[in-house]
Design a protein around this nucleic acid. Structure first.
Lengths: 152, 152
DNA sequence: CTCAATCGTTGACAATCTCCACGATATCGG
DNA sequence: CCGATATCGTGGAGATTGTCAACGATTGAG
């Protein structure tokens, strides 16, 4: 019962590693890695832009990691930093038109990579998995951050 | 529908990151990290010892990573390398008595860390999650290895 | 105005992943 | 037996990721 192959934590990291590899391979044609894609996707989804701090919070990254990722995406012309109209501290990250286009293609490629890894699961099973994972993730937002303490 | 928060791949890596952090925090008292613990657990479970190559295969790691991990565990006196009776190439990794003892405590601590992250899920839901993840992982063993090619 | 908090950034360092090459050993075909 | 090929552990290089501390600019509270 303490067998590693039945350990939910181990299975989670093992499955994650496999999916990340498959997704990175699928995105390599576009010159993107998963990390960059996730930043691009969030920036593209937030019409008026998203602060880097919120980006870090959503992705579970350290703010300093977001700096480098946005730098790379900006150098590739996929996103740009814009000032907030109401606060001069944050820098709102938005996707450029080219970024939106690349994101669309990347989403398709990434989906293919994920399906190569999860093809054995039916649509319904994947929905079940998604729901369970959302509760694991959502239940701890605010309880444990990247460099944060545990609230207990 | 392409929202990142509904993307199974993203949720998988996000949940994995949270669980790994919680588990590492729980194991820090024993001076262990998750990677080391997983090696120790597999070595402890295989009575006669497990070859480093098989260790790498099971854990989805590069063989060279296993070398360093076993070095660390051996330096701590938790495992030792023994020659195979039938083949002089592999080195079988087995847990020392102390390693077995530490592993038992570590398993308890790690379980606590995981539950702090997945407490919102009932036992039945965790079993469902485990089953789905096992199919994601098991379905690809042999299809995609650490440094390997995709078989298609 | 003063002080604490927030945001982005930089820098340093550890941990992890990926890939390549080598020596020792084993296996297979002839 | 012998040579070609494969396996296993190991070492090393380099990229990627994770963690942490500090700083300047800005904001908001008192």
């Amino acid at each position: 019962m303490s067998d590693l192959r039945n350990d939910v934590g181990f299975l989670l990291t093992r499955a994650s590693g496999l999916v990340v590899r498959a997704t990175n391979a699928a995105l390599s044609d576009l010159g993107l890695r998963v990390r960059q894609y996730s930043v691009l996707a969030l920036a593209d989804d937030s019409g008026e832009g998203i602060a880097q701090r919120d980006l870090a919070e959503e992705l579970g990254l350290d703010p300093s990691q977001v700096v480098a990722l946005v730098d790379e995406l900006a150098a590739a012309g996929l996103v740009e930093r814009r000032p907030s109209p109401t606060d001069r501290r944050p820098r709102l990250v938005v996707a450029t038109p080219q970024g939106t286009q690349v994101r669309r293609r990347a989403a398709s490629s990434a989906e293919g990579g994920v399906q190569r890894q999860m093809g054995d699961l039916s649509g319904e099973e994947q929905a079940t998995l998604r729901g369970l994972l959302q509760r694991v993730v959502g239940g701890s937002v605010g309880r444990c951050r990247a460099g944060g303490e545990l609230t207990e």
